[in-house]
């Protein structure tokens, strides 16, 4: 029943997901999901709401626990161990739909404080690195402001910079543009494109099909907790194999 999505043979997969199951009570959100992501690969995950796509990427940094199967990040398997989880989380950056910036901290502190707390980086060093990444998302001039004073698009770019400050090997994006006004979507997507061009391993849950076609190495389509289809963008958009994928694409593109 389930389509297994296996990457082209890579030496060490950045992310390995094998036959993962997860239930909320009696409701199964993830059903035998398997996915291997090579280092430097860009994956776009799409699907109708409730299809389990957010849950899947939240399992990768263990914001949710899976109940069966294996997940390994950079060769470290997610087991029931505090040390493992912290190691994995430091290597995986995450960007949320609602930004989740810390409203009581300035933009600069939003980026600097997590480094100090999670890795014991000295303040000076943390702030230098924060400024460097804020410049990279072209928002350095706002460093002294507070999140509430920024537009949604600016906040989301800060959130990306904050995640990058932790020097992750993998970046997860959970519908990063869904909460934005249409005119702000572009600036965030451009930031993500430039990140992709620098060779970051990325898993992006999004409905922005233009972004998927332009950036993704593979597009994954999920429905009712299963991976229905997984293919390169050209094949995925031009000749989808499954009826369910076709009707989804029809709804979302027309």
């Amino acid at each position: 029943m389930t389509t297994s999505a296996t990457a082209p043979a890579a030496t060490s997969p950045a992310i390995l997901i094998e036959a993962v199951d997860k239930w909320y009570g009696t409701f199964q959100v993830l059903d035998q999901v398997s996915l291997t992501v090579a280092t430097g690969e860009r994956i776009v995950v799409c699907g109708p709401s409730g299809s389990g796509k957010s849950t899947l990427i939240r399992c990768i940094n263990r914001l949710e626990e899976h109940q069966a199967g294996r997940i390994a990040v950079n060769g470290v398997e997610l087991t029931d161990s505090v040390r493992n989880i912290d190691a994995v989380r430091r290597g995986v950056g995450m960007v949320f739909q609602h930004f989740n910036l810390f409203p009581h901290l300035s933009i600069l502190d939003n980026c600097a404080l997590p480094q100090m707390l999670a890795r014991g980086t000295p303040r000076r060093e943390a702030e230098d690195r924060a400024m460097q990444l804020l410049r990279r998302v072209r928002i350095a001039e706002q460093a002294a402001k507070f999140p509430g004073q920024l537009s949604g698009g600016q906040q989301q770019r800060v959130a990306i910079a904050r995640a990058l400050c932790m020097e992750p090997q993998v970046m997860l994006f959970d519908e990063p543009t869904s909460a934005l006004d249409p005119e702000m979507v572009k600036e965030v997507l451009e930031t993500m494109v430039s990140l992709a061009e620098d060779g970051m391993t990325m898993i992006v849950v999004t409905h922005e099909m233009g972004f998927a076609r332009r950036v993704a190495d593979r597009v994954v389509f999920m429905d009712t907790g299963r991976i229905v289809e997984c293919a390169g963008p050209d094949e995925f958009f031009d000749s989808p194999r499954h009826e369910r994928t076709r009707s989804f694409l029809h709804q979302i593109l027309h």
């Binding site: 940094n61 914001l63 912290d86 989380r89 430091r90 995986v92 950056g93 995450m94 949320f96 989740n100 910036l101 810390f102 997590p114 707390l117 999670a118 890795r119 904050r162 995640a163 932790m166």
Partner: peptide
Amino acid sequence: MEAARALGIP
């Protein structure tokens, strides 16, 4: 709290 945990903050 989720954002803080995702950043690896104890």
